[in-house]
């Protein structure tokens, strides 16, 4: 098992330089360089560390668990297959989420095309009135929270794709604006604008939850 106390040094000046460059970025990039050198055990370490965040991120983007897992498998498969050409030019997480976002947004576009935009664009905020027949508070609470959750899911799904990805990385992955910008391939100011517009839409759709 790798620890920070045991820095990995490769023979040769080139590799030393690559490791030094990776170390300035992050430790995961350094681990990925070990995978590049043929260390498959380290790939397992990276998989364990990033598996859940990637799957959850993709799940919130596509909102289907089976699809999210399938796409996440493809993400890690691509990481493994491109190990020989890996260069630590960015943080490992940025690179990983760039692959994940690319795959998920592609899937959403294909899906949207196939379904004639029926599912994501036809998001109606007019949910049917909640009929509560059972007076037990636990069931009532459960139903209310289920309705609220559904509203959150629909509000997020109703956002344009890039805004959605930006919100999910900002809110759940706590990624910085610069990192999100690199994942989405745009400027930092564009990310700020994307996020502010996205949260503006979400405020309009979800603000009523604060009063209920």
């Amino acid at each position: 098992m790798l620890t920070n106390a045991q820095p990995y040094m490769l023979p040769g000046v080139e590799n030393d330089m690559a490791v030094a460059a990776a170390a300035t970025l992050d430790y995961d990039a350094e681990l990925m360089l070990r995978v590049k050198e043929g260390d498959d055990v380290t790939f397992g370490v990276l998989l364990e560390k990033h598996r859940v965040p990637v799957i959850h991120f993709v799940f919130r983007l596509v909102q289907e668990q089976a699809i999210a897992e399938e796409l996440s498998q493809e993400v890690f498969l691509r990481v493994y297959r491109s190990r020989s050409s890996y260069e630590p030019t960015a943080k490992f997480k940025t690179w990983l989420f760039r692959i994940a976002t690319h795959l998920a947004l592609n899937w959403l576009r294909d899906e949207k095309h196939e379904r004639g935009q029926e599912r994501l664009d036809d998001v109606s905020m007019d949910l049917p009135a909640l009929q509560i027949c059972d007076r037990r508070p636990s069931v009532e609470q459960e139903m209310v929270s289920e309705v609220k959750l559904d509203q959150v899911r629909r509000a997020v799904a109703g956002l344009p794709e890039k805004q959605r990805a930006a919100v999910l990385m900002h809110k759940y992955e706590e990624m910085e604006y610069t990192q999100i910008a690199r994942v989405l391939g745009c400027s930092e100011s564009a990310v700020k604008s994307l996020l502010f517009r996205a949260y503006e839409t979400l405020r309009a759709r979800l603000a009523h939850m604060g009063t209920s």
């Binding site: 959850h56 929270s145 959150v152 997020v156 759940y172 979400l202 979800l206 603000a207 939850m209 604060g210």
Partner: peptide, 11 residues
């Protein structure tokens, strides 16, 4: 409120 609502969305 939005932040709190998003917090409740668990994968």
């Amino acid at each position: 409120t939005v932040w709190k609502a998003l917090d409740g969305w668990e994968a």
